[in-house]
């Protein structure tokens, strides 16, 4: 067991963890943050995407001990985030989810895209989602929603 400290969704957290515990399991089992979903545990599905120090991160491929001293933001920590709010609203309007299991990872991944590229083309959106599996929607609604959110953020940069 190792004691770790991190800033988690804006607040300091100190916990003892087993060294082999993944960041995803730490978030879900130790911190009760269950928006981070586990769809494969080998980095291929994207459902566990979170933000670590501003970097898009697969929480299944980081051990919690590796995040000692870092800033971790899960979807729960993005409630006041204007890009995420725009995305959530657009996902709702564009029927971008069915079962919803992939949605947290999609939102975190889409936010990362829009922060780097505020006006992505459809091809760029699809490319950014190439590592996120959705089994229900066939992606059309998700791709559309991200384009809608990008438009909204460009048209109303400070409204959210």
């Amino acid at each position: 067991m190792t004691k770790i400290r991190m800033t988690l969704n804006g607040a300091p957290v100190v916990r003892e963890v087993e060294d082999r515990t993944s960041l995803a399991d730490f978030l879900r089992e130790e911190c009760g943050l269950t928006a981070t979903h586990l769809g494969c545990e080998h980095g291929a599905c994207g459902a566990c995407s979170v933000d670590v120090d501003g970097l898009l991160t697969r929480a299944c491929l980081k051990f919690a001990v590796q995040c000692d001293g870092r800033t971790v933001t899960t979807l729960e920590g993005l409630n006041q985030d204007r890009v995420t709010e725009a995305l959530r609203d657009a996902f709702h309007r564009a029927h971008a989810l069915q079962c919803g299991f992939c949605t947290p990872g999609m939102l975190v991944t889409a936010r990362d895209l829009l922060l780097r590229n505020p006006q992505p083309s459809e091809a760029e959106i699809r490319d950014a989602l190439a590592g996120n599996i959705c089994r229900c929607t066939g992606y059309a609604g998700i791709v559309h929603a991200i384009a809608l959110a990008a438009d909204e953020l460009i048209r109303h940069p400070r409204s959210l």
């Binding site: 494969c40 080998h42 291929a44 599905c45 959106i125 699809r126 490319d127 989602l129 190439a130 590592g131 996120n132 599996i133 959705c134 089994r135 992606y139 998700i142 791709v143």
Partner: peptide, 11 residues
Amino acid sequence: TFADYIMPCAT
């Protein structure tokens, strides 16, 4: 695993 079982994505 998803390395061998290929799932279609947005691309």
